[in-house]
Design a protein around this nucleic acid. Structure first.
Lengths: 196, 196
DNA sequence: ACATTATGTCAATGAGCGTTGACTTACCGC
DNA sequence: GCGGTAAGTCAACGCTCATTGACATAATGT
């Protein structure tokens, strides 16, 4: 009790001081953790560790867990490379994609992240706005034609549905089931793109 | 402070001793809470309180939180009153349902429950099997016709998609957007039921 | 009646986690 | 060089919550 060893600042080579980089690293780690574990199970200590930073910096840079989450959510919407997609090939491409096994990539993580956010009463309202501006809007622009609002909704809904189905399925379809499945998917999107 | 009143076992009318009923009540409360809050945010104390039981009984009857969850998950699959649905009216009925605001009913709760489970790596495999046997199978039987496997998958996927969309939207569609939306939904399900 | 068992109650423990503030120290302008 | 500020580190508080074991008592069979 008498003498608490004053531990001599070891050669811990403290982190290089770059606020921007640190912030970015934390955000990246947060995106991954939130996607993988969800809001509740993701721990700030874990996130900080993965980012090679200290927990307290999360408070400094994001205010707290919620702030970090909302930022990560915003950052999870890709700048939509929807435009790269050829309208003619779109239905068939999507069909193939949905019949295959879910890719274990950042894409899937982002999607799981969003899906998770949708199912949480806390984060749902926030997600609603984000979806409006960053998801439905681009789809509308890409779609064009009459009644884009309604059609974009349907397109988004169906798209999400197939993503969820693929997620639950977990593996690629094969044989005749695959063919028929793809045919239906293609037909569905064809109908939506054809306009109505 | 001096004399802590030794509260004389008040007429607390201790719970009537009926293990089965208690177990059932806990399970019911669990289903509701898990659906509303998700696995992590749902508290055993809350669940027990809602069931009018004590926390420790959860351990006795279900082993713990995880056990309770898996049981609740199993019990969340309705015996599918799919059969009650008129095939002819099905597409239009679904369209109306999806265009409206999400009902705050047991139905919606069950769905959120399942969706939540789907997004959790822990519970996903379990859900996969459950979906196979309790969701896809009934749909197949109801559907009938050729290639039921593939068609049931598509049907389930689209159905889930619209549910999610409605969930995120949070409110009823109105005016022309509603009409066009419903028209598309109807057409989509018509195509699936028509066979192919 | 009595003993046994199943059912229900209560209080405490211990871990995990977000949050917080005090303390170092590298970086940068002067 | 020098001082000030921002970046990073550390330890601890307080809260929530699942878990657990000890205790009380109704129900049941003999």
């Amino acid at each position: 009790m008498t003498d608490v060893q004053i531990l001599s600042r070891e050669p811990v080579t403290p982190r290089r001081r770059d606020a921007q980089a640190t912030r970015a690293a934390i955000l990246e780690a947060a995106k991954a953790q939130f996607a993988r574990l969800g809001y509740d199970r993701a721990g700030l200590r874990e996130i900080a560790a993965e980012a090679g930073a200290d927990v307290s910096l999360i408070k400094r840079y994001f205010g707290g867990k919620e702030g970090l989450f909302t930022e990560a959510l915003k950052a999870s919407f890709q700048p939509d490379r929807l435009k790269e997609w050829d309208r003619a090939a779109f239905p068939a491409d999507i069909a193939t994609m949905m019949a295959d096994a879910p890719a274990d990539e950042a894409r899937t993580h982002s999607f799981q992240f969003l899906l998770r956010a949708a199912t949480s009463p806390t984060t749902a309202p926030l997600l609603n706005l984000a979806v409006q501006e960053r998801f439905l809007l681009p789809i509308r622009e890409w779609l064009g034609g009459a009644d884009v609002h309604a059609r974009a909704r349907v397109l988004a809904a169906v798209f999400i549905g197939f993503l969820v189905e693929r997620l639950i399925r977990g593996e690629a379809l094969e044989g005749r089931e695959r063919e028929v499945f793809m045919a239906h998917v293609t037909a569905t999107f064809d109908a939506l793109l054809g306009g109505g």
